[in-house]
């Protein structure tokens, strides 16, 4: 008992520096942002307005559109990207595959791209007269050019393509690292029992990687709910507000328009609430036992 208590204290000691730093640099500002969300006004002229910001939020058509768009990205993009990342990591983990280093680097590199290049290149590739349309026309997949940046539907598709392009390799890294932590003897045993590679994937790899799958699912959900770079730099939120996300809207309220930091903070806490809800669901599905 004494030893156990002792170890419990050591555990707290290990975590103490992180707890201290995160409280200081995240929770303290977060608390201030929460207080701010009950105030409203231009720039420095803030006045206490109680729950007005939250009422305003639910009557704000633009905020609702941003919320809808964000959900669309979340539902269609996150599961697809996670499966893709897992698929590539298993492929690239095969020791018999040649040029693994090259393929790994190639798939990872998009996540290091500079935002300037990212935005210019995607706009260029997907412009109405761009290479992507040329290619699709030549293959007769489409009969007339797609207006990627001007059409509400295709602009959303473009954003989803862009996020997938940029973040699949990033998530793949976590799986690749995780795969190395899986005990190899389990695979050996399975092989002896005659399990093929697909069976191995579903009955060994996925259950073993569960903690990592949960990690990427939650962090990707957080990332998507806070999605900013892509709509800001590729579509500018357009056409109309059809690709606008909540984070971009927060940015607009804070910097693009006459700033109202109180309202911006209130919109931010909507993201916090949503993320908490989604994370709890994912923890439950992920089978974390408490």
């Amino acid at each position: 008992m004494g030893l156990k208590l002792n170890r419990s204290i050591i555990g707290w000691f290990f975590a103490s520096l992180s707890i201290l730093l995160i409280s200081m640099f995240y929770f303290y500002p977060m608390l201030q942002a929460l207080i701010l969300s009950f105030k409203s006004g231009m720039g420095a002229n803030l006045e206490f307005t109680g729950l007005d910001n939250y009422v305003r939020l639910f009557n704000d058509p633009v905020a609702m559109i941003a919320l809808r768009n964000t959900f669309i990205y979340l539902i269609f993009q996150v599961p697809f990207m996670i499966l893709l990342a897992m698929f590539f990591s298993v492929l690239l983990n095969n020791p018999n595959l040649k040029f693994r280093g090259f393929f790994r680097t190639a798939i990872f590199l998009p996540s290091v791209i500079s935002l300037v290049a990212y935005s210019v290149i995607f706009k260029y590739l997907f412009s109405t007269e761009g290479i992507v349309n040329d290619f699709l026309l030549k293959l007769s997949i489409i009969s007339e050019p797609i207006e990627w940046l001007m059409d509400p539907f295709w602009a959303k598709v473009l954003i989803i393509i862009a996020i997938t392009w940029r973040w699949t390799g990033y998530n793949m890294i976590f799986y690749l690292a995780g795969l190395q932590n899986v005990d190899k003897s389990i695979y050996e045993a399975a092989k002896i029992d005659g399990a093929n590679s697909i069976q191995q994937f579903f009955y060994i790899t996925i259950p073993m990687l569960k903690p990592i799958i949960l990690f990427t699912a939650i962090t990707s959900t957080i990332g998507t709910l806070q999605l900013f770079d892509e709509p800001m730099n590729i579509t500018g939120g357009g056409p109309g507000n059809e690709t606008l996300t909540i984070s971009q809207y927060i940015y607009n309220i804070s910097f693009e328009y006459t700033p109202d930091f109180g309202y911006a903070a209130a919109v931010s806490f909507i993201i916090v609430i949503l993320t908490v809800v989604f994370s709890i669901i994912q923890f439950k599905i992920g089978g974390e036992k408490d």
């Binding site: 957080i222 900013f228 911006a264 916090v272």
Partner: peptide, 28 residues
């Protein structure tokens, strides 16, 4: 060194990820 208390603190720490940085910038 998992314990009930640590799990709660850990979950609270995760909260810090959930707010967009733009909202923290001015207080920070």
């Amino acid at each position: 060194y998992r314990s009930k208390g640590k799990d709660i603190v850990f979950n609270i720490l995760l909260l810090s990820l959930m707010i967009p940085f733009a909202a923290l910038m001015v207080p920070l």
